[in-house]
């Protein structure tokens, strides 16, 4: 399998706090990779390094390399707008904009310069179809996205990212604000999307990683402890710390 993303010796500091230390992680193309670990282990920070969302945090320092298709995205010459178009992100809490359903999905395209409604409409339709929202919402395109249920809002946020045709989808605990049934349906959606995208999901729910991910990485205290095929990590971990975590000794 081809490597889509590779971090090499990635270190990250929030002020004096050493949040990531020497992370070397390869993410395969067109499969789902899960990052698991206890709260505060740096898994969200690692995820946010992959589209440079950490740049928004004051006093953050990064060292090492993050290669996307072999090109270092930490280089100062990186076009951040283009990077984030290629590497989309879905957040822990559904965060649709206080705009209409249509304007939410069309947002990314408008940001990248496409203003004609006739060009936007087919993309909005196909994006909503890919997240199975079209049938529910095709008559409500002009109503506010804030009136949708939490699950619909999260699907809408996924549609919004899919609309700009990213190569990678980063998902930061995308189901933690949803009930178990909605969680199951979002997981179905992830599996359905996996063929077309490289998906990286952060979760503290080990069962979720086991259900959706082909590859799993275990993090602890800012270090990448172990990474491998999901079955190996859960059934036959090499590292004692991974074994303790997946067998439920702590976390």
């Amino acid at each position: 399998m081809a490597k889509k993303i590779e971090t090499q010796g990635l270190d990250l500091y929030y002020g004096k706090f050493h949040a990531l230390s020497g992370v070397n992680l390869s993410i395969e193309s067109h499969v789902i990779t899960a990052i698991i670990g206890p709260s505060g282990c740096g898994k969200s920070t690692l995820l946010r390094s992959l589209n440079r969302m950490n740049d928004l945090v004051h006093g953050v320092r990064v060292a090492g390399r993050v290669l996307l298709d072999g090109v270092d995205i930490l280089a100062p010459s990186t076009n951040l707008s283009l990077l984030r178009r290629r590497v989309g992100m879905v957040f822990q809490r559904p965060n649709p904009f206080p705009l209409s359903v249509f304007d939410n999905v069309a947002y990314g395209l408008r940001v990248h310069g496409e203003m004609r409604r006739s060009h936007l409409l087919p993309v909005v339709e196909s994006s909503l179809q890919s997240t199975l929202l079209w049938d529910e919402l095709k008559d409500k395109l002009d109503s506010s996205a804030l009136e949708l249920s939490p699950e619909q809002q999260q699907r809408l946020c996924i549609s919004r990212v899919v609309a700009v045709k990213p190569e990678v989808l980063l998902m930061d605990e995308p189901c933690s604000a949803l009930d178990p049934i909605a969680t199951g349906r979002i997981e179905d959606l992830m599996r359905a999307l996996a063929g077309g995208y490289t998906i990286v999901i952060v979760t503290h729910n080990m069962q979720q990683a086991a259900r959706v991910a082909a590859q799993t990485a275990y993090m602890l205290l800012g270090e990448l402890v172990e990474v491998g095929p999901t079955a190996h990590i859960f059934e036959n971990p090499k590292d004692k710390r991974t074994e303790d975590y997946v067998s439920g000794l702590y976390g």
Binding site: M53, L56, L82, V164
Partner: peptide, 10 residues
């Protein structure tokens, strides 16, 4: 909102 928008490349 800021995060969501920046993450879309805005």
């Amino acid at each position: 909102y800021l995060e969501g928008s920046i993450a879309l490349g805005a």
